[in-house]
Design a protein around this nucleic acid. Structure first.
Length: 581
RNA sequence: GGCCCCGUGGCUCAACUGGAUAGAGCAAUCCCCUCCUAAGGGAUAGGUUGCAGGUUCAAGUCCUGCCGGGGUCACCA
């Protein structure tokens, strides 16, 4: 049930009736007619812009349309009042039973309340994390991981068929570096003194890998040239790193559907096939690029290269796909990878990148546009930096190479639920401050706590109800007479619940899971306000001694809040708290 | 220099992709605990949405040009 959609349907139907009566001319487009909550609650429960949108095409005054529409709407039982305001807004106040039915719908539909069908079962691929398999995940990856996972959860809830995918960059030169670094640790495991020269990874996390390698091959590779061990060691090392990364993701509660290996694209003709597709479309050519506009690099020299005509699909310059030594640029396998995604039949693609990859957005979009002939949209979401703090002071990462704050560090210190929620308290393209102390603070400043506390309070009421003998399981509550729910503070909460399905759709349409986190904070706020009013006005308490029917009506509202909080947190991958400790 | 992102009360951020008088939280001042967990709530004060134009019934939101901050910029991924 989506109340806003229902009322919009009513408005559209009413406009159609007016057209049939000849009040409005034929053929008006209703596309831009919206029904939304007004900013100011004093304006009523819902407002429509219909009169203003239609005034010009209809050749009528906004107020005339609004008056006619108001009269029509007032005939519906759900509309308690409809009045014209401002330049032609039509404000509607809804009848009390509408809110009671909203609460009942939440209890009846349970965790499915708010589920949407706007996705229409379309298959969407969300690619995220995709960190190089050269070490453990760090905080930056954590934000991308949480964002991508929450987005996937959101789209699933909105009716899409979602695939969560990780692209393993195991094909480039960085894997050779990894292999050499592991080799050094391997020598170390054999008691050798080693030096980590520039261009190798000195991180401690490779120590165990070196030991494991020793156990596997003994001393067979000691004092052997690279030709002997490099190829095999690459696989060994990337496997070890992917095991590490998988366990990092598991600690955060992220589970991928697909791990796609870049290496699997090489030597199999798949890169060639993708470029052949572009070539057949006349988008591959040999040419010389102009130097970048403005500042020319010192060592610039004109060079003939194999280029992808990405400018034909919105990019600023064409992009090389082959290096001068004949090998592929990194962009070539990326093209092939997205070609693979397109050919797997996805209806939409989403890539989640760190903000430092902003420069690749246009070329990736151009590639997907070209490969799919514009049929498959690619949305690229960039996640901004995470700034770490401890007790309000910037948390310096050690300068020592290879030593950084890992995902594991964060999760072990504050837990996966807090990590996830906090990472979503800012929209993806804004920098995020993460303070190890503040995120554990129990105060209104901390949204994680605030939302969890609201849910815990509901649970507390349910436990207390059981103690004093008031039946309050869901089966009872959804059949309860909600007539006793009339107070303004109660209706404020019900109104907020009614917004949930609409919020889900907006968040899904924009690919912005942070909206869910903000909504939950607002819902919790309305609930806390109601709770506190119960301190002043005993009549607003959820448990009314000696009046089981009234208690059940009020408990039903509280329970509905926890149902929506649980559903919302579920989308974000956070477990709701049953009690605070 | 080109491209991308950001600029909203003293501070940290929202604003339902164009809707009404721009909303929250911190900080400030004042109030509310025999009461379902006060780990909370209520009230007051605080704004030319970086600047200047434009588009329209309507602009924080869209367009153009500036200013400021960040990212990025051909054979590294």
């Amino acid at each position: 049930m989506n109340l806003f959609a229902e009322i919009r349907d009513l408005v559209i139907q009413s406009l159609a009736d007016l057209t049939a009566q000849g009040v409005l001319p034929e053929g008006l487009s209703m596309e831009n007619v919206t029904v939304e909550p007004p900013r100011d609650a004093a304006h009523g429960d819902m407002a429509t812009n219909a009169a203003m949108v239609l005034a010009r095409p209809a050749g009528m005054k906004p107020r005339d349309i609004a008056e006619a529409l108001a009269a029509r709407l007032a005939a519906d039982a759900r509309i308690a009042r409809a009045e014209v305001a401002g330049p032609g807004f039509l404000n509607m106040a809804l009848a009390l039973p509408v809110w009671h039915e909203t609460v009942r719908a939440v209890l009846t539909e349970g965790g499915d309340f708010g589920r949407s069908r706007i996705g229409q079962g379309l298959r969407v691929n969300v690619e995220y994390v995709s960190a190089n398999p050269t070490g453990p995940l760090h905080v930056g990856h954590t934000r991308g991981a949480v964002f991508g996972d929450a987005l996937a959860g959101l789209l699933d809830f909105a009716g899409y068929d979602v695939t969560r995918e990780y692209y393993i960059n195991d094909g480039g030169a960085q894997v050779d570096v990894l292999a050499r670094s592991v080799y050094l640790r391997y020598l170390e495991a054999h008691g050798r003194d080693v030096a980590f020269v520039d261009g190798t990874y000195p991180g401690d996390y490779l120590v165990d890998v070196g030991v494991a390698l020793k156990q596997k091959v003994g001393d067979a590779w000691v004092d052997q040239p690279e030709e002997v061990w490099l190829t095999e060691l690459r696989d060994f090392a990337t496997d070890a790193m992917m095991d590490l990364i998988r366990s990092d993701l598991a600690a955060l509660g992220v589970r991928m559907d697909v791990f796609f290996s870049e290496k699997s694209l090489y030597g199999t003709g798949r890169i060639e096939a993708a470029l052949a597709d572009l070539d057949a479309k006349g988008l591959i050519y040999e040419g010389v690029l102009e130097p970048p506009k403005g500042k020319t690099p010192e060592d610039w020299e004109p060079r003939e290269q194999t280029l992808f005509r990405s400018t034909a699909h919105g990019d600023d310059v064409d992009r090389p796909v082959r290096k001068s030594d004949g090998g592929w640029t990194y962009f070539a396998p990326d093209i092939a990878y997205h070609y693979d995604k397109v050919s797997r039949g996805f209806d939409a693609l989403i890539d989640v990148f760190g903000a430092d990859h902003g420069g690749y957005v246009k070329r990736m979009k151009a590639a997907v546009s070209a490969l799919s002939d514009g049929r498959v949209p690619l949305d690229i979401k960039l996640t901004q930096l995470v700034r770490l703090f401890k007790n309000g002071a910037p948390f310096k990462m050690s300068k020592r190479a290879g030593n950084f704050v890992t995902l594991r560090d964060v999760v072990e210190q504050v837990g996966p639920d807090v990590t996830r929620f906090v990472m979503l308290t800012r929209k993806n393209d804004a920098p995020l401050d993460f303070d190890f102390d503040k995120v554990l603070e129990q105060s209104r400043e901390n949204p994680v706590f605030y939302v969890q506390y609201a849910n815990a309070r509901v649970m507390s009421v349910l436990r207390r109800a059981a103690e004093i003998g008031i039946a309050a399981d869901d089966a009872v509550l959804k059949g309860a007479d909600l007539g006793a729910m009339t107070h303004g503070s109660e209706l404020t909460v019900a109104r907020k619940l009614a917004e949930w399905p609409r919020l889900v759709e907006t968040a899904a349409r924009t690919n912005e899971p942070h909206r869910v986190a903000f909504y939950l904070y607002e819902l919790a706020g309305d609930f806390h306000a109601l709770w506190n009013k119960g301190n002043d006005e005993p009549g607003l308490r959820f448990l009314q001694e000696g009046d089981i029917a009234t208690s059940q009506a009020k408990i039903a509202l509280a329970r509905a809040v926890s149902v929506v909080i649980s559903a919302g947190l579920g989308i974000l991958g956070v477990k709701p708290a049953q009690e605070m400790r």
